[in-house]
Nucleic acid binder design. Structure first.
Length: 228
DNA sequence: CCCTGATTCGC
DNA sequence: GCGAATCAGG
């Protein structure tokens, strides 16, 4: 079987999508896994995590060299924990989900004054407060680094919502396809209790139509699900 | 054993 | 250029 332009494009696409060489070979047909790998390398497609590449004395030495091993100092005061770079959903204690009304990224300079909890506590000798069963894992003191970012004006709607920006509040409906350069997620406010916004909930959760009224499903990439 | 990707080398 | 054989880690 020859490597036609079309087959090469399929190979490129699948390879970039992260499919294994075996899967690609099976999908293309007429070629072996080795053929796919060989072709991928000849095309310059390169280097997905290979199980055989981790080990290597030379690479490791190089890695060490690049890492610039700091001299063994012990009493050096560590500056401070690095602030979290990604706006991952910080473990913020939800005060009380009163209304579904959105709280749109409260502006900075908000000190979040926690009202002192008037809880009944057993006081031990020396004045320490005994933990109750519910308190066991509560304390996470190591500095709550609130982001001091100016707060994006209009959430992520203006730009594109990437995988790293997903959280429980924004719509996870995918737009485009993984691997495509502009693949992103919807990103608008969710319909409370659902992973999608109201509009996409409408698409995700549909009542069954009578068979005669159903639209045929759109063609799936690469000829649909593989039969196995 | 199975899987994976990388590399080699005769064709 | 091609891909089977081989290597080597998970």
């Amino acid at each position: 079987m020859a490597w036609t332009d079309e087959r090469i494009n399929q190979l490129k696409t699948m390879w970039e999508q992260g499919m294994t060489a075996s899967q690609i070979a099976e999908e293309l047909g007429g070629v072996s896994r080795n053929a796919v790998i060989g072709k991928a390398h000849r095309l310059g497609l390169q280097s997905r995590p290979s199980p055989v590449k981790a080990n290597d004395s030379e690479a490791k030495a190089e890695e060490r060299r690049a890492a610039a091993p700091p001299p063994p100092r012990a009493a050096e005061p560590v500056p401070a924990p690095v602030p979290v770079p990604v706006p991952a959903a910080a473990p913020r204690p939800a005060p009380a989900t009163t209304a579904a009304a959105a709280e749109p990224q409260s502006p900075p300079a908000e000190a979040a004054p926690r009202p002192a909890e008037p809880a009944m506590r057993s006081v031990g000798p020396g004045g320490f407060l005994r933990q109750g069963p519910g308190d066991q894992q509560a304390p996470i003191p190591p500095a709550p680094p609130r982001r001091l970012v100016p707060a994006k004006p209009s959430a992520d709607i203006a730009g594109k919502t990437s995988l790293l920006e997903l959280n429980d509040r924004i719509c996870k409906w995918p737009l485009g396809h993984p691997g495509e350069p502009d693949f992103h997620f919807c990103g608008v406010q969710v319909n409370p209790g659902f992973p999608y916004c109201v509009e996409h909930c409408g698409q995700a959760y549909q009542a069954q139509l009578p068979r005669r009224d159903r639209r045929p499903p759109p063609p799936l990439p690469f000829g649909g699900p593989r039969v196995r």
